[in-house]
């Protein structure tokens, strides 16, 4: 009961201190207005008038992530890639194809999961493909698709990945393909510059003041926002298969891993 006494006193103390702070007006005016920088980003996120400055996407967060501060996100993707390489290093020497899995959960759970997985994949693809129009994007879609790997590992067993044809090397290849697609989009302006002699910048999206290079904003009258849709789809591939690798490794049974890594039990 001491636990709940401490809990109630923490909550009450927080409320009382908040009341005293408000009464003394100690924090000043808060929650009234946003900064000038925020107004600038909101003004320029979809603005057909200032074509040299805008990202031409109605979704302010995606346009900051992949256009205004795109190089930040590029390096963060590399950090993400390296973290999963580090996790793979701990499991070096484990061959995934030799495992024999269990039976999974009961029939009812398995049938319901079988119905849920296609819905989950459809939602993930739609979040990635509409990332420049509605809330969503590559990171969100990748996290949603990663739930599929958890469902597979828990309801069926670790061997279900092999039955579906998803091996570790295939997953590594697919996420490397995602990273390569991002690199391709980033270096396209440079290749264009080398071929034609027009001045361009790395990771450029639209025309700038001193550069006439631009990706198309519309295809067949549909807004695709230049590089944003391609970067979202590539990031979706990289993030989702990165998490597939992690949960494939985590779902391996411990005895199998110990046997294959070859650690002694004397410790």
């Amino acid at each position: 009961m001491r636990k709940y006494f401490v809990l109630v006193s923490i909550v009450l103390a927080t409320v009382v201190i908040a009341y005293i702070t408000t009464y003394l007006r100690a924090l000043g005016p808060i929650g009234l207005d946003t900064r000038y920088l925020a107004k600038l980003f909101l003004m320029l996120t979809y603005n057909p008038v200032y074509r040299e400055l805008t990202a031409m996407s109605p979704e302010a967060v995606t346009s900051i992530v992949w256009d205004f501060r795109g190089v930040d996100t590029l390096y963060e993707t590399v950090v993400f890639y390296m973290a999963i390489i580090a996790a793979l290093t701990i499991y070096r020497g484990v061959s995934y194809s030799s495992i024999w899995g269990g039976y999974g959960l009961s029939l009812i759970v398995r049938v319901v999961t079988k119905l849920l997985i296609p819905i989950n994949i459809a939602i993930a693809v739609s979040i990635a493909a509409h990332g420049h129009l509605t809330p969503g994007g590559g990171f969100q879609a990748g996290a949603v698709l990663a739930v599929v790997s958890v469902l597979l590992a828990v309801t069926y067993s670790a061997s279900s990945f092999i039955k579906l044809g998803v091996s570790l090397s295939k997953a590594v290849a697919l996420r490397s393909a995602g990273l390569l697609a991002i690199a391709l989009v980033v270096f396209t302006p440079i290749v264009f510059s080398a071929l034609t002699g027009v001045q361009t910048y790395i990771m450029q999206n639209y025309v700038k003041i001193d550069s006439s290079f631009s990706f198309p904003t519309h295809v067949w009258n549909q807004l695709i926002s230049g590089t944003l849709i391609w970067l979202n789809l590539a990031e979706f591939l990289a993030v989702s298969f990165g998490f597939f690798i992690i949960f494939m490794l985590l779902s391996l049974r411990e005895e199998v891993v110990r046997e294959q890594i070859g650690e002694k039990d004397e410790h």
């Binding site: 979040i127 809330p135 949603v144």
Partner: peptide, 10 residues
Amino acid sequence: PDIVLVYLPV
């Protein structure tokens, strides 16, 4: 809403 979409599955 963007953060909700990534935060909920994660």
